[in-house]
Design a protein around this nucleic acid. Structure first.
Lengths: 196, 196, 196, 196
DNA sequence: AATGAATGAGCGTTCATTCAT
DNA sequence: CATGAATGAACGCTCATTCAT
């Protein structure tokens, strides 16, 4: 009857379900998406969902985890591309990569951390990223690249500026996007008292 | 039988319901609050709700509208307290009042704009406030108080920085709060190239 | 559209639901009956069930309680119809009424106590009735009407004999039923060493 | 790869599944036990279950059949240990063995006949045992050992008395158990008009 | 205007059964 | 024979909304 094999490796099924769920959650929201919507989109039966996830909440957790993992990886790699004492390069790299990642991941971050945040605050990308930015600001200050009074507050401020600016609608346009990235980096530099 | 009058002016009923709803939505979230929760808290019968609002969504809209109205009013009033050419005073006033309002209104803003945003982008405080900030930046630039390349982008950036920073947990402490307000104003000034 | 009034007194609705549930539980079993079966039979919507009972289990509890109440009442009344020293009359009354009640209540007892017994043993009719029989045996022994070595064991034995005998299929026939009642009473008397 | 052979004789598999099912059904009930519970306990895959039994109901039937077979065998053997004209010995043997069997088999009988009875009445141990008791009562009456008016009714009565008495909680204690057995035999004798 | 009983579509989850490997 | 991923019908329960009183 069916040309496709009936069974797939567990990880593949999981991914298909997660991709379908991600798409639907972003389109209509977590509460507004039913498990059946997800399984229909993933072209499996309802029961198959529960072979991979023990509840609807669990797939959201998995989505969050996947997002954090990708995000943290990418940003770290980008920062490491510039070695001290090129602190400005590191800061620009952080800002640029972080912004791009948010732009690419679209409102996924918004979904998994803002709209449907984890029950406890542990492991928030938000925190992970803010911490990494704070460290960057501190090491740059120590290295004499700039001076910041309160690295934590500055990190919070800049992170949220970036996050909010990037979430603003209208960033689909590539030209706008480049302008935005440039503006973000300029503001980052200004905020630490560097001319860029 | 009952000492209280059973009928009240419509506006009073509306307010009681909205207050109850606001409290509950903030405590447990929109989806997690039932219409019955609201009417119980407001001490009216379930049906009374539908005399004032045609659906559960509608009371959220009303809440949002009330929030925007209060917010815009307060910020405008604060800015007008300083007259040109004191553009720095106006900018500081904008930042300070806006931040305080968010801090006071607490997660209400988060609820009505971030978690349960309006279906269309019209009338977002976000936009209203960003527009007012953009105007302020432009007029300050014209007045020679500072210079900004792209007033819109800067407004977006600063608004979101403020919004995010203020939403950060840990702002209940009054001392922290003052430090935060000061830091925000400093960043605002730095971003427009003024020493503050 | 509908000729019947939409609302009924809560107790009436409750009774209708309980009657429908009793019928269905007896016909097909507790697990095999769905809440929707019950509401369909009671001619109300599914949600109406949950206005009266907070779960499917709860209606079974209510059924059990109703059964115990009726049973205990009837047997007590029957026993009290004969006053001491007519202990034989009291014993015969107990046996006869208890048997008739079981015959009339049909397998309801079986359902609520044997098939779907309460989570804790407290308040079992079984126990209530056995206790009352034990008391009767003791008072008769004290009054010199008969002698029993171990009133508790005898009560247990006789109660179960009666219960089992009455549950036997084939008791629908009225003639059979009378023979059965007579046989039960005879055995009761024999068991306490009385000729009847 | 695996040290154990992956295939076993059908009867062995069947027995393992039946033993696992019996244990689980008694522990948590028929409806509350899933096929997967059974196969997990029997350490086979889910599909293997359906190699031996065509449905969950069928394994219950098999359990019932096994129970009846064992029960009938044991009681018959015990009765045959006394030869006529020792009818009293045969009756005492019947009562004692039957009671002990129920005590040993524990709630298994309760499960397979009371809680989850067969759809049709055919082959009920209940009936088989009642029939054998009825025969015993008749032959004893013919042999002049006792007199009973209605052997069938008496058999029904006594069987149910025994069954119910034995099912009563609190029979785990060995001393209680002996008292119970003695009381049962006494009542059996009294019921047929013998002093024992 | 106010009430709250009644409605019924909808959802998350379970599990007996099938069947390709 | 044995496996276990896949299926999908079914169920208990919730809750926004309606409407007769």
């Amino acid at each position: 009857m069916s040309s496709k094999p009936r069974t797939k490796p567990a990880t593949e099924r999981r991914d298909e379900l997660m991709n379908a769920a991600e798409k639907l959650f972003l389109e209509r929201g977590f509460e507004q998406t039913t498990v059946e919507d997800i399984t229909t989109a993933a072209e499996v039966a309802k029961g198959t969902f529960y072979l991979q996830f023990s509840s609807k909440t669990e797939i959201l957790d998995a989505l969050r985890q996947r997002f954090v993992y990708n995000m943290a990886n990418t940003v770290t790699t980008a920062v490491e591309a510039c070695k001290p004492p090129d602190f400005e390069g590191r800061l620009a790299g952080w800002a640029r990569t972080c912004a791009i990642q948010y732009l690419e991941s679209g409102p996924l971050h918004h979904l998994v951390f803002v709209i449907a945040p984890p029950p406890n605050r542990e492991g928030l990308t938000r925190n992970i990223l803010i911490d990494s930015l704070e460290e960057l600001l501190k090491s740059g200050a120590q290295g004499g690249a700039w001076s910041v009074d309160d690295p934590h507050l500055t990190a919070v401020f800049l992170f949220n500026a970036l996050h909010g600016a990037v979430n603003q609608p209208g960033n689909e346009d590539m030209e706008m996007r480049e302008k935005l990235l440039a503006a973000i980096i300029t503001h980052f530099f200004r905020s630490v008292g560097v001319q860029g």
